[in-house]
């Protein structure tokens, strides 16, 4: 088993005016390639914060985060952008897509930042949209799609650069159970195909899919 992600005593403190809000208080954990990790905990426990740090969207206040062999705090802004673009696929709870672009263009967008020619990009985006069952919605704008369809577009987009890691922050939080289950099935299939998945959720039912459960409370790990 190769370790893909490793956190060592990670702290995150948000500074609000003069007060300091500690969101993570010394987290250490490691995630292996091919894991399906469920990250659970009450609201405000620091799940999204942890996810953003792993996804290189933010930097830790203290502690080390390793992606493969890289300590991300030693990487430049453009290296981090490269990691976000190529190694990681994000799926958020809301506001996933660029509203002025069609589903197809949204899916193709991550490849634009990797300088992939437009023709290749759109071809790959079409294939992925077909895989998530949206071949008839390619030209639609996000405002013309349902919540479940938007999440499927986001999954297709997360896959386009073939990343190793998928980070999903409550991807089904806004969906009804049936639609949520469909999205979960897509994630489960991806994990079966070898993607490492970290899923943030409130729903204990969804943790059944995971082979590893991380519980957070007040910015600390609980049990394990």
């Amino acid at each position: 088993m190769t370790t893909l992600i490793k956190l060592e005593d990670v702290h995150k403190i948000y500074k609000l005016d003069s007060t300091e809000v500690p969101a993570l208080n010394g987290i250490s954990l490691s995630i292996n390639k091919g894991d399906f990790v469920a990250l659970i905990g009450p609201s405000g426990s620091g799940k999204s914060t942890a996810m953003n740090l792993v996804g290189c969207l933010d930097l830790a206040s203290k502690g080390e985060i390793y992606l493969k062999e890289h300590n991300i705090k030693h990487l430049s802004e453009s290296d981090l952008a490269q990691i976000r673009g190529k190694q990681i696929g994000f799926i958020f709870q809301v506001f996933n897509l660029v509203p002025s672009l069609t589903a197809l263009e949204n899916v193709a967008l991550p490849m634009a930042f990797q300088n992939v020619p437009r023709g290749i990009r759109l071809k790959r985006a079409r294939e992925l949209l077909e895989q998530v069952g949206l071949s008839d919605r390619m030209k639609h704008l996000p405002s013309q799609l349902s919540g479940g369809q938007i999440q499927r577009v986001a999954i297709a987009r997360a896959l386009i650069n073939d990343p190793e890691i998928i980070l999903a922050d409550e991807p089904t939080g806004n969906l009804d159970t049936k639609t949520g289950d469909e999205i979960m099935k897509l994630l489960y299939d991806l994990n079966r195909k070898g993607k490492t998945i970290i899923l943030v959720t409130h729903n204990p039912d969804l943790t059944k899919l995971a082979n590893k459960i991380i519980r957070l409370k007040d910015g600390k790990l609980v049990g394990s």
Partner: peptide, 16 residues
Amino acid sequence: TRDIGIMKAIGARNSD
């Protein structure tokens, strides 16, 4: 602003 956030999350560099 949010579009900028999304684009950065999917790999846009500052220079992009």
